[in-house]
């Protein structure tokens, strides 16, 4: 590990539990690198996660951390942020955790525009429980619960977040690590709900069923199928079809929830005097 980042990890807990070739380690390093480059108080930084492969990450990170119940990371994070609005709150969640079990928490946290920085590790599958299909498993792809290919349409989580009211939405991949780090930094600077979808890879539960021979093949797939949103503006639609956009997809500031809540309290306390 880069020596400058070592202080952000609970080094005695490493090596981590993730499978060989799992991209979660790369995403976690990007998150830690973004935190190291930001001017924030590390003692006022908290990392909260739900359940799943991705949600193991706070266990390795040397901050105040919460490992909560399945899908409820955003509910806990909302409470933490409302009680202590001065904290910088990161939420680490997975595709199943955020969009299936915690789907309602997700849309309502986005709707409130509460200042949380959500890093959604999208590995397209429920990795920890044995490779069941998640709402982000692409149509036609294989998992243990979709052995003949998934019939369901998958969510585009960034579009869902924009529609629900998130003020900063970006997407990065494990391959485009520098872009992902920049997106996380911008997400923290945004005062409001920030969603950063980090496309990672699960070579064991997802890759083996979907014709990815090695973890490096999955990284190369990310490299070949991602188009930067700035480059996409100049490309004809047929060149974008079937690929996904990376970079800053949405940035539209709006009143932040805890600030509005404090204003309301101040207004009525003033009236009581």
């Amino acid at each position: 590990m880069i020596p400058e980042l070592e202080k952000f990890f609970r080094v005695n807990k490493l090596p981590h539990i993730w499978c060989p070739g799992c991209g979660n380690g790369i995403i976690t390093r990007c998150l830690v690198e973004a935190i190291s480059q930001l001017d924030i108080d590390y003692d006022k930084t908290i990392v909260i996660s739900g359940i799943g492969c991705s949600s193991r990450a706070p266990g390795y990170m040397n901050f105040d951390t919460l490992h909560t119940t399945h899908g409820r990371a955003l509910a806990f994070a909302t409470g933490v942020k409302l009680a202590n609005p001065e904290l910088t709150v990161f939420v680490i969640t997975g595709d199943g955790d955020a969009t299936a079990i915690g789907g309602n928490h997700f849309i309502h946290a986005a709707r409130r525009n509460i200042d949380l920085n959500v890093i959604l590790y999208n590995n397209n599958i429920y990795g920890m429980t044995g490779g069941q299909g998640s709402p982000l498993t692409p149509t036609g792809h294989f998992s243990t619960t979709t052995p003949y290919g998934s019939v369901d349409r998958n969510f585009d989580i960034t579009k869902l977040a924009i529609a629900a009211g998130a003020t900063y939405v970006a997407r990065g991949t494990a391959f485009h690590d520098k872009l992902l780090t920049d997106c996380i930094k911008k997400g923290v600077e945004n005062k409001g709900f920030s969603l950063i979808e980090a496309i990672t890879m699960c070579p064991i539960s997802y890759g083996r069923k979907n014709n990815f021979a090695t973890p490096a093949n999955m990284l190369e797939w990310q490299k070949n199928n991602a188009i930067n949103v700035k480059a996409a503006q100049k490309l004809p639609p047929e060149k974008i079809a079937g690929k996904f956009l990376i970079g800053e997809l949405h940035n539209e500031p709006y009143a932040e929830y805890t600030a509005e809540y404090d204003k309301l309290i101040a207004k009525y306390q003033e009236g009581a005097k």
């Binding site: 590990m1 880069i2 020596p3 490493l14 090596p15 981590h16 993730w18 070739g21 799992c22 991209g23 979660n24 380690g25 790369i26 390093r29 494990a174 391959f175 690590d177 520098k178 990284l219």
Partner: peptide
């Protein structure tokens, strides 16, 4: 290699 090692094994 350093940036894409998921296990932080290379500096």
């Amino acid at each position: 290699c350093e940036n894409h090692c998921p296990d932080y094994a290379i500096i």
